[in-house]
Design a protein around this nucleic acid. Structure first.
Lengths: 178, 178
DNA sequence: AGGTGATTATATCGGCGCGATACATCGTGT
DNA sequence: ACACGATGTATCGCGCCGATATAATCACCT
């Protein structure tokens, strides 16, 4: 997921670690941490996999006096990898964290894949909703007051999210027909 | 967190791993995974720390023919540890996952600690809310349509959660006055 | 009697992401 | 002159997850 986010961001422009993290924090900070403790290891992993490379030193010559930075840019394999991750958008794509990240890169995502992701996410949230409903309406072994409160709140918020997703999907459909 | 949940559950009765996981899944499955991949290592950790012990074999004699199970029960140190975790309920207690788990054990939680947790959680959600608000009302560099949608949805849901927390807090206060 | 699949039950492995922490440099205010 | 916060890279330990292995038991069908 972190990998996906980094590859996505680097489509905009070559960047160094600190900047990537800052952008991610600004973009998705409310939904995920994107800590440095993951950032740098992930960058190295991507580099080892040949998906990104350190930009040539000509740039750093321009901005001399600046602190040491490592600017990374996508390789063709990196772009390919990003496209692959979108194309194979599977079950793990619909979970809470992952979905938010994908949404943030939706402008760069083909319309059919957008649809698949939105509908997958909806199915996923609907399943959670059904689980909560079932739990709340279950007779026998009455539930603890606080737990019930938690589940009610959860149910309400999943219901709202489903409605929201329906709107998004409807909007996609209407755009498709244009 | 897993540790907290296990210690909390074992206050009800001695149990074996599979059962603990099942109860947790039933109780909080909509909010957390509680996978076996964490369960068994955590149990061993708790055992090594002397917070739980394997129950004597007299039980397994009763239910012979059953499959091999390891039934754990709390030690006095385990109960103490649980109380400590409640007493020292700090910043990491208010995050999404953690808060849900705590709520599930609220009946076993002293009223003053309940208050601290609820108010901490509220502060935490309010901070997220402010971040989202600020992000959405920020002039300059207009946001991607989908990202804006995500943030709006996030803002709305944090607002709802704050309202919900206020109700819970009010209810606690009114109960306190009785 | 035999087969098949779901449930009960324990356990390990690899990997991701986090928080804490450690360094260094730079700009700004006091 | 000094402190403080932002910039910048990096590591460490650990919690938790998903995938996987193994095996006994049970319900059901044939």
């Amino acid at each position: 997921m972190f990998e996906f986010a980094l590859l996505g961001l680097l489509h905009e422009a070559p960047m160094h670690g600190y900047e990537l993290r800052k952008r991610l924090h600004d973009l998705l900070g409310a939904f995920r941490a994107f800590s440095y403790g993951s950032l740098y290891p992930t960058l190295r992993r991507l580099q080892r996999a040949g998906l990104i490379v350190e930009e040539g030193p000509e740039e750093s010559a321009l901005s001399w006096g600046r602190r040491a930075r490592k600017v990374y840019e996508l390789t063709p394999e990196g772009k390919e990898r990003f496209a692959d991750l979108l194309a194979n958008a599977g079950p793990q794509t619909w979970d809470d964290d992952s979905f938010g990240v994908h949404l943030a890169f939706f402008s760069r995502t083909p319309a059919d894949v957008r649809m698949r992701i939105l509908e997958g996410r909806r199915r996923c949230v609907e399943e959670r909703r059904e689980g909560l409903r079932e739990r709340l309406t279950r007779t026998g072994e009455q539930i603890d007051r606080y737990t019930r409160e938690l589940h009610s709140q959860g149910l309400e918020s999943t219901e709202r999210e489903v409605r929201w997703l329906n709107e998004l999907i409807a909007h996609e459909k209407s755009e498709q027909d244009e």
